[in-house]
Nucleic acid binder design. Structure first.
Length: 480
RNA sequence: GGCGACGUCGCCAAGUGGUAAGGCAAGGGUCUGCAAAACCCUCAUUCGGCGGUUCAAAUCCGCCCGUCGCCUCCA
């Protein structure tokens, strides 16, 4: 079995073959840092985080580059998003950038999204972008006009292939008047002359200005990953114009294919419609994380295919949170059980076979275009076996518990990231576990005396603190 | 209008030619001092609709209906 991915470039599933055996170079379009990140970011970046985690777990050496857009991304109104944020909060543009870049990483850290290997800032790569624009002009793919530089779409025959659009039709669909300084309506900006009030500006061969939104991705991806690299990721909503333009610029500049595989995540709607501030259905991650565990959010995202659209609602997340709790329970129980002394030694041979099967099912699911939903279904089926085992009369041997724990740790933990790690520091966790066990023992004594009032009080007080007690054949166990 | 995607149980969702995974919710049972958790059983002869291809279709083709996303130049 080998990894198969859906390649938007060819619109079909293909066997994944990296340029260099055992090595993957991947670039994913990152956020524009002018406001807090939202649930849509979570969907895309949890998906790619899981993808990268899986590739690494499969043995690939991965270099993951994800840009930070801090210049050049304009709104419909023509305002620069960063400048708008700066005006809103009355601070320096670069303060906005810094504030929301930190917030972005904080939110992603909370979600267990591992940081990309390189997070290049567009504003820190102006020279590279200028170089690429100069190359494009020299090659006849771009022209300067009135202090701005435009990409000459007519010079690149494949323009429109990726998004399935025809240049002629696009010209017809134009809604707004075409700038006179452009040769053709479909030409797009590589470098924009800065208006006097546009304070985010750099010196260039064409005067003071700022780069177009698309050029940063072409320049930074090829800088860190090479002219041609393996995977380019992003969201489907950027397929046109952003990705289309990226490809045109990069291939026209280097004369080589850009990315071999394009993996795009489906869009996210909230209560059935696109999320937008004006509709009041904008959900930021920091608000969501106040109400839900990050693992539940990951579970929500991973219970669908990364390519499928997903609709967010409170009820949907509520259901996901419950599903997550059920998924994670046996892994937590195994971990707790391993703490107890006097475990029988050895390991169950039969269960080793069951684990091997579960592992094969997990790999088969993930190898099929990162089908995390099917992978989770497999884990649920494995759970059933583990739960039955844990509830059985006979004590489970230490080796068996360790093998189960290791399996959960790799699949649900290392790859999917939906298993909560050890809480706080090890020392605190040990102390906490000891205190809880003391209370469990006191409760057991009370119950032995038929003093159920005391027993229930202990259980209720602990429950209020988020510690659930469960009475079983092996005595009482607990979980957070 | 153009391009793309989607429509599978009350809800979420996997399944892309071989006879419908999984989760949430619901009903019944076992266990328990009571709970909780867990386990067992039940829950889509059917995959938006209508045709077609095939021995065989949720899966392929056509038409229709519905939902969502994108539509440069200022991204």
């Amino acid at each position: 079995m080998s990894l198969v991915v859906y390649n938007t470039l060819t619109r079909k599933k293909e066997e994944f073959k990296p340029l260099v055996e055992g090595r993957v170079r991947i670039y994913v379009c990152g956020p524009t840092v002018y406001d807090y990140s939202h649930i849509g970011h979570a969907k895309t970046y949890v998906a790619f985080d899981t993808l990268v985690r899986y590739l690494r777990w499969s043995g690939y050496n991965v270099r993951y580059v994800q840009n930070i857009t801090d210049v050049g991304h304009l709104l419909d109104s023509g305002e620069d998003r960063i400048l708008k944020g700066a005006a809103r909060e009355r601070i320096e543009p670069m303060e906005i950038v810094e504030r929301y870049t930190r917030a972005y990483f904080d939110d992603m850290d909370a979600l267990g999204v591992q940081r990309p290997d390189i997070s290049p800032r567009a504003s820190a790569h102006i020279p590279e972008q200028i170089e690429m624009i100069k190359t494009l002009i020299a090659g006849g793919h771009a022209y300067e006009s009135n202090g701005s530089v435009y990409f000459a779409v007519a010079s690149y025959t494949d323009y429109g292939r990726f998004s399935g659009r025809k240049v002629e039709e696009m010209a017809e669909g134009t809604r707004k008047p075409v700038l006179e300084e452009k040769r053709n309506a479909e030409d797009f900006a590589l470098w924009k002359k800065a208006a006097p009030e546009h304070i985010l500006r750099w010196s260039s061969p064409w005067g003071w200005g700022f780069p177009g939104w698309h050029i940063e991705c072409s320049a930074m991806s090829t800088k860190y990953l090479g002219d041609t690299f393996d995977i380019h990721g992003g969201g489907v909503d950027n397929i046109f114009p952003h990705n289309e333009c990226e490809i045109a610029q990069a291939e026209a500049a280097t004369g080589k294919p850009f990315a071999n595989y394009w993996l795009l995540t489906g869009s996210l709607t909230v209560d059935g419609v696109k999320m937008s501030k004006s509709l009041g259905n904008f959900v930021t991650l920091r608000d969501l994380l106040k109400k839900h565990r990050p693992e539940a959010l990951r579970f929500f995202v991973l219970s669908g295919n990364y390519r499928s659209p997903i609709d967010f609602s409170d009820e949907a997340l509520e259901a996901a949170a419950k599903g997550w709790a059920r998924l994670a329970a046996p892994a937590q129980a195994v971990r707790e059980r391993l703490r107890s002394p006097n475990l029988p030694q050895g390991a169950d041979e039969g269960l080793a076979g069951v684990i091997a099967e579960a592992r094969a099912a997990f790999v088969a699911a993930m190898d099929d275009d990162f089908n995390s939903a099917a992978a989770l279904a497999g884990l649920f089926e494995f759970n059933k076996i583990v739960n039955t085992l844990l509830n059985a009369e006979a004590s489970v041997a230490q080796g068996t518990l360790q093998a189960i724990g290791a399996f959960y740790g790799e699949t649900a933990g290392q790859v999917l990231g939906v298993l909560s790690g050890q809480s706080a520091t090890a020392a605190n966790a040990d102390r906490e576990a000891g205190l809880i066990r003391l209370l469990i023992e006191l409760r057991a004594e009370a119950r032995k005396r038929k003093d159920f009032a005391t027993g229930d009080a202990i259980r209720n007080r602990l429950a209020a603190l988020g510690v659930a007690l469960e009475d079983g054949k092996e005595g009482t166990s607990w979980k957070l």
